[in-house]
Amino acid sequence: MALTVMWFTMIAALLAGTGGAAQPPAAGSGGRSWPVSGPGPRGRPEVLRIFEPPATGWGAGHRGVDLRAGPGAAVRAAAPGEVVFAGQVGGTGVLVLRIGPGLRISYEPVRATVPGGARVAAGAQVGVLDGGLAHCPGGCLHWGLLQSVPGGDVYLDPLSLLPAWIRRPGPSRLLPVYGVAAPA
């Protein structure tokens, strides 16, 4: 009987499109979250520009990810942590969240809704998107990840913070294969 219930539960999960994977953790459970909501599955926003690390510390590149979002959009903590900076840098609102030893997330352009020193859970609102960036027509959030190492900071891909089930654009679909012989 228990085996039948287990199989039924797995099949129900597959039919629901979860692929049998664990469901997203609730905000505050130590999980992860997209920093802005989008129209995709599980609130996945459109990625306008990917992380392109510079060849040198001073070279050209894109030291983060741009996510489509308009002014006034809620900005959430992608991981649990502590707000270590909330203010203006060169006239642009910036919020920095320390998420672990030597790891910091940055968000811009953001008007912070939490003060420096605040502890926040993954998924908790930390700010509001404040206007746009010149390189993002229609508005976007620039989301960065920095790691402190001896000699300075290294930029990392912030998408690496998110588990695969959040990053995937949607459930896999099995399609018929025509013209291929069935395996023996």
Results as ranks from 00 to 15, higher is better:
residue 170 G to N: 02
residue 109 P to V: 05
residue 143 W to N: 00
residue 145 L to E: 07
residue 162 L to A: 09
residue 113 T to K: 08
residue 90 G to T: 04
residue 131 G to D: 02
residue 109 P to K: 03
residue 160 S to G: 13
residue 75 V to C: 01
residue 107 Y to F: 15
residue 168 R to D: 15
residue 117 G to K: 13
residue 177 V to T: 07
residue 162 L to R: 05
residue 147 Q to W: 11
residue 165 W to S: 12
residue 115 P to M: 09
residue 110 V to R: 14
residue 83 V to S: 03
residue 158 P to K: 03
residue 113 T to D: 06
residue 145 L to K: 10
residue 179 G to S: 04
residue 160 S to R: 13
residue 120 V to K: 04
residue 108 E to R: 11
residue 168 R to P: 01
residue 101 P to F: 10
residue 107 Y to I: 06
residue 107 Y to A: 09
residue 94 V to C: 11
residue 115 P to A: 11
residue 83 V to F: 08
residue 77 A to K: 02
residue 88 Q to Y: 06
residue 172 S to F: 14
residue 139 G to R: 08
residue 128 V to P: 02
residue 97 L to H: 00
residue 138 G to W: 01
residue 79 A to Y: 06
residue 100 G to P: 14
residue 174 L to V: 15
residue 170 G to C: 00
residue 156 L to W: 04
residue 155 Y to T: 15
residue 84 V to S: 12
residue 167 R to M: 01
residue 151 G to S: 02
residue 135 H to E: 10
residue 117 G to E: 03
residue 113 T to H: 05
residue 74 A to H: 07
residue 96 V to G: 09
residue 135 H to W: 05
residue 126 V to D: 01
residue 153 D to H: 10
residue 98 R to C: 01
residue 166 I to D: 14
residue 158 P to I: 09
residue 152 G to T: 08
residue 168 R to A: 15
residue 81 G to H: 09
residue 170 G to Q: 03
residue 84 V to A: 06
residue 167 R to S: 11
residue 165 W to K: 09
residue 152 G to C: 07
residue 173 R to K: 06
residue 120 V to I: 11
residue 127 G to H: 08
residue 127 G to C: 05
residue 99 I to S: 08
residue 133 L to K: 12
residue 89 V to H: 12
residue 163 P to N: 12
residue 139 G to K: 06
residue 94 V to E: 00
residue 171 P to Y: 06
residue 127 G to F: 06
residue 163 P to D: 05
residue 123 G to L: 12
residue 131 G to K: 06
residue 176 P to V: 11
residue 173 R to Y: 00
residue 76 R to N: 02
residue 175 L to P: 09
residue 166 I to S: 14
residue 102 G to W: 01
residue 117 G to Q: 03
residue 100 G to L: 10
residue 129 L to R: 04
residue 168 R to M: 07
residue 179 G to W: 04
residue 170 G to W: 11
residue 142 H to P: 07
residue 177 V to L: 10
residue 99 I to V: 15
residue 142 H to Y: 01
residue 109 P to W: 03
residue 103 L to F: 11
residue 174 L to P: 02
residue 177 V to C: 00
residue 140 C to E: 14
residue 138 G to M: 05
residue 86 A to C: 14
residue 149 V to M: 06
residue 174 L to I: 15
residue 128 V to A: 12
residue 154 V to W: 00
residue 107 Y to C: 11
residue 75 V to Y: 01
residue 163 P to I: 04
residue 148 S to V: 09
residue 149 V to W: 01
residue 92 T to N: 10
residue 122 A to M: 10
residue 83 V to W: 03
residue 106 S to N: 14
residue 175 L to D: 07
residue 100 G to E: 05
residue 127 G to N: 13
residue 146 L to Y: 12
residue 85 F to T: 00
residue 81 G to C: 08
residue 156 L to D: 02
residue 132 G to K: 13
residue 173 R to N: 00
residue 88 Q to T: 07
residue 156 L to S: 06
residue 89 V to M: 13
